[in-house]
């Protein structure tokens, strides 16, 4: 549908107000909602039942990958070009430890960073929410709650009334 909007976005002035509003909007049965804040609000994520533990697993996967890569690389080099330095062992873990440690960390952080962008579908320079007239304040000192038009319960009048009753400072219908 070409004329279907992205959703309603409501502006709140404080942390407490948006956490309260998000809780009630969920209780009213809305599920397809999103919130935008100037800084991380763990409380809000809990109320909205948002959880994602994949970053930790990505970090672990990156670490294991870097560990194996570093060990394999060094062992292979010693195998392909065995340098005998005073009879010292060719495959000593103690001498490999530093590079193993460094690459474990390097790949853990690389996986984490690329994973963060991929999970968040960034970079994406434009997004419907940016059409909201006062949305530039979401990075400054205002808190925005969005009920998307895709939600089963979305209704132009009822949804707007609900948000107004929750004490929103401003409400806007965002085009997609």
């Amino acid at each position: 549908m070409a004329d279907m909007p992205y959703g309603f976005v409501a502006e709140f002035a404080s942390e407490d107000a948006i956490v309260h509003a998000a809780r009630l909007v969920r209780q009213a049965g809305y599920r397809n909602i999103d919130a935008f804040t100037p800084f991380p609000l763990p409380r809000l994520a809990r109320v909205m039942r948002l959880r994602d533990s994949r970053p930790a697993w990505l970090g672990l996967a990156g670490g294991i990958f870097g560990f194996l890569l570093a060990f394999g690389m060094q062992a292979f080099v010693s195998y392909a070009y065995p340098l005998n330095v005073g009879g010292r062992p060719l495959y000593p873990l103690s001498a490999y430890a530093v590079v193993i440690f460094e690459l474990t960390i390097l790949f853990a952080v690389l996986f984490l960073f690329v994973g963060l962008l991929a999970l968040n579908r960034l970079p994406r320079l434009n997004y419907p929410i940016f059409n909201a007239p006062r949305f530039h304040l979401a990075s400054k000192d205002r808190f925005f709650l969005c009920i998307k038009a895709e939600d089963r319960q979305f209704d132009r009048e009822n949804t707007a009334r609900l948000l107004r009753d929750l004490g929103a400072i401003s409400i806007a219908l965002v085009r997609s």
């Binding site: 935008f36 994602d52 994973g115 963060l116 968040n120 960034l122 994406r124």
Partner: peptide, 17 residues
């Protein structure tokens, strides 16, 4: 800024990362 919009789930993943 890569189009950062401060979405709650984005912040959640960001904090963990």
């Amino acid at each position: 800024a890569l189009g950062w919009r401060g979405s709650t789930i984005h912040w959640h993943r960001w904090s963990r990362t």
